[in-house]
Computed example of a mutant assay.
Amino acid sequence: MLRWLWLALAIWGAIHPMAYFIAWFQANGWSLMAMVEAWHANDATSGLVWDLTIAAIALTLWVLIETAQTRAWARLLAIPATFCIGVSCGLPLYLFLRSNPGGSRD
């Protein structure tokens, strides 16, 4: 049951933030650099960006270290999910993949 909760959170973590990103791009143009600039509009947003960046790096290290130990290669999918979508998708996706009932290998 918990495994499916992780998957539901990963899906929500992909869809919900992406809706805001798409709305922003539609209103402001499709410039990634303009979005990065907007993320640093003030100290509050810069703090949030750094908070998520550090969390993404920590998650990536965790995924790499555990994957090297377990050889469960499918778990590496959490890394592009984290950096292309966000920690809100990458972390629950990793927990879903990690809770594979078939054992440690994917």
Rank of each mutant, 00 (worst) to 15 (best):
A27H: 01
N28D: 09
G29K: 11
G29Y: 01
G29N: 09
W30N: 11
W30Q: 05
W30I: 04
W30L: 11
W30H: 12
L32D: 00
M33D: 14
M33H: 02
A34G: 02
A34D: 04
A34S: 06
M35E: 03
V36C: 04
E37D: 14
E37P: 06
E37F: 04
W39P: 00
A41N: 02
N42C: 06
N42G: 09
D43R: 15
D43N: 13
D43A: 14
A44K: 07
A44Q: 06
S46D: 12
S46C: 05
L48E: 02
L48P: 05
L48T: 15
L48F: 04
V49I: 12
W50Q: 12
D51N: 14
D51G: 07
L52W: 02
I54C: 03
I54Q: 02
A55S: 14
I57A: 14
A58G: 00
A58E: 03
L59T: 03
T60K: 13
T60R: 13
T60H: 10
T60E: 03
L61Q: 02
L61S: 03
L61M: 10
V63S: 00
L64Q: 07
L64P: 04
L64F: 11
L64G: 07
E66T: 15
E66M: 07
E66W: 07
E66P: 00
E66V: 06
T67S: 07
T67H: 05
Q69M: 15
Q69P: 01
R71L: 10
R71K: 13
A72C: 06
A72W: 06
A74W: 14
A74Y: 03
A74R: 15
R75E: 04
R75Q: 12
R75S: 01
L76H: 07
L76K: 13
L77T: 12
L77D: 08
L77S: 14
P80T: 08
